[in-house]
């Protein structure tokens, strides 16, 4: 798994590649927390090169979404969610908790 954070004018673009499971989710969580600690609560998570995500990754997304949405200060949105990961998110009932966009330009533009 690899996580890269790009600070844009109106939001942070966090790209997570590879596989997020119980071993790698803490690193993903840290990247999300770091953005929040810097006072950034508008976050785009680019999943276009994500191969796999277990519920450990879902929990990291949920914790960050709670933090971002508190006091209406922002939101975490998803980009290019691969089909199988989307289906797993749906089974977990998570899809309604996150806006999802097909590409990062539209997602970044939504802020």
């Amino acid at each position: 798994m690899e996580v890269t954070t790009q600070e844009l004018k109106h939001c942070d673009l966090i790209k997570v590649n590879g596989r997020v499971d119980s071993a790698t989710a803490p690193t993903f969580s840290k990247a999300l927390e770091k953005a929040n600690e810097a006072g950034h609560f508008k976050i785009v998570v680019d999943m276009s090169e994500l191969e796999y995500m277990s519920s450990a990754g879902f929990r990291a997304l949920l914790a960050s979404q709670r933090n971002c949405k508190r006091y209406n200060r922002g939101e975490l949105v998803l980009v290019a969610v691969p089909e199988r990961i989307r289906e797993a998110l749906e089974l977990a009932g998570f899809t309604e908790l996150f806006k999802s966009f097909d590409d990062s330009i539209t997602a970044v533009g939504s802020f």
Binding site: S55, L62, A88, A92, L97
Partner: peptide, 14 residues
């Protein structure tokens, strides 16, 4: 909703 969503039990549910 978001604030009441439980974090545990998701693995077994899946």
């Amino acid at each position: 909703d978001l604030s009441e969503r439980q974090i545990g039990g998701l693995g077994l549910y899946l």
